[in-house]
Amino acid sequence: MRKTIVASLCGLGLTLMAGSAMAADVVLKLHQMLPPQATIPAKALQPWADKIKAESGGRIEVELYPAMQLGGKPGDLVDQVKDGVVDLIWTVIGYTPGRFPKSEAFELPFMMTTGEATSVAFYDYYEKHLKDEFKDYHVLTVHTHGPGLLHTIASKPITSLESMKGLKLRGTSKVVNQMLEAMGATPIGMPVTAVPESLSKSVIDGTVVPWEVTPSIKIAELAPNHTSFSGKNGLYTATFLFAMNKDSYDALPDDLKKVIDKNSGRELARQFGKVMDDGDMRGKAIAEKAGNKLIVLDDAETARWKKAGESVTANWIKDMDKRGLNGTELYKDAVAFVEKESK
């Protein structure tokens, strides 16, 4: 029996040693607001975490915490990573209105094209104009989603600009809410995670989101009218930040910093944008299979919406000028970057 006990203890010791040997040198906590099955968590953040682990030889472990599991509201994420409460975050920049004003250029009406092209354009814009706004973060990348469109309840399809009058529509950010108001709707701000309950309780008549997020928040079921636009430009897009705490990054040895650096930047923006575009195809297919009403406004009607959105752009440029920023330059650069990547 004594030999058996000794052998068992030795075996346990070897197991513990092996476990210790396999333990990561660095564990990074990644916090974000969407459920794990949503497009970016499942198709971008998890693969990124797996790649970091593989390329670091298991020395970096990224723990993913979806749906605000570590506490707080989505708007708190930028401070959580800045203050070191977590090591990494992925979030909607517009959830903190007014904090990163120059980034709002990409939220302006009919600015964007595809998720991939606009994400690369947004990264180039970040490189030129946004580094000061994000100086408190180690930015891994920034990106956008694909074309944003309108989704409304069964009794209120949007077939023209006049259809917007009196509708209560959830918006994603300050700029998008201003756009909805300029187009005749009553904007209601809330995180995307609050949309299903708000639709089911008739708090809102609809929402703006891209196709990719619709499956995870039951849009095809709750808001079966989907209105999009003619031409290459989508109604709007949201902007996203994937960032790391600066101290967490600085504490890494040089070889592990290189692993993070290799998986950051412009090409990561492209990857995230493409993931969004692929998610759009999946979300749209679900709505089509459900027999929902997909409305595409023609060129003439789309032109009316673009005209209605011009005041939002003009007011944003004036607001930037009042802040001592060159609103016209920022807007023109945003347009130029998007056009360059969308050819």
Rank of each mutant, 00 (worst) to 15 (best):
Ile5Ser: 00
Ala7Cys: 00
Gly11Asp: 05
Leu16Gly: 12
Ala21Glu: 13
Ala24Met: 01
Lys29Arg: 14
Leu30Val: 00
His31Tyr: 10
His31Thr: 07
Gln32Val: 12
Gln32Asp: 14
Met33Phe: 09
Pro35His: 07
Pro35Trp: 02
Pro35Ala: 08
Gln37Cys: 03
Ala38Val: 01
Ala49Trp: 10
Lys53Thr: 06
Ala54Trp: 05
Gly58Ile: 10
Val62His: 01
Pro66Trp: 04
Asp76Val: 06
Leu77Val: 01
Leu77Phe: 01
Gln80Tyr: 05
Ile89Pro: 02
Trp90Pro: 09
Tyr95Gly: 15
Pro97Val: 01
Pro101Arg: 15
Ala105Tyr: 12
Glu107Ser: 13
Leu108Tyr: 08
Pro109Thr: 15
Met112Lys: 10
Glu116Gln: 13
Thr118Trp: 01
Ser119Arg: 05
Tyr123Phe: 10
Asp124His: 05
Lys131Trp: 11
Lys135Trp: 04
His138Phe: 07
Thr144Phe: 04
Gly146Ile: 00
His151Thr: 09
Ile153Tyr: 00
Ser155Asn: 14
Thr159Gly: 09
Gly166Val: 12
Lys168Thr: 03
Leu169Asn: 13
Thr172Gln: 13
Ser173Pro: 11
Ser173His: 09
Val175Pro: 15
Val176Thr: 04
Val176His: 04
Gln178Ala: 05
Leu180Ala: 09
Glu181His: 07
Met183Leu: 14
Gly189Ala: 07
Val195Ala: 06
Pro196Phe: 02
Pro196Asp: 08
Leu199Gly: 12
Leu199Asp: 07
Ile204Val: 15
Asp205Gln: 13
Pro215Met: 08
Leu222Val: 13
Ala238Pro: 05
Phe240His: 12
Leu241Gly: 02
Ala243Trp: 12
Ala243Cys: 08
Ser248Glu: 07
Asp250Glu: 14
Ala251Cys: 04
Lys262Tyr: 12
Glu267Trp: 10
Ala269Gly: 03
Gln271Val: 11
Lys274Arg: 10
Val275His: 04
Val275Ser: 07
Met276Phe: 05
Asp277Glu: 08
Ala287Met: 09
Ala290Trp: 02
Val296Arg: 08
Val296Pro: 00
Glu301Ala: 07
Ala314Glu: 02
Lys322Tyr: 04
Leu330Trp: 00
Asp333Arg: 13
Ala334Glu: 06
Val335Trp: 01
Phe337Arg: 12
Glu339Met: 11
Ser342Leu: 02
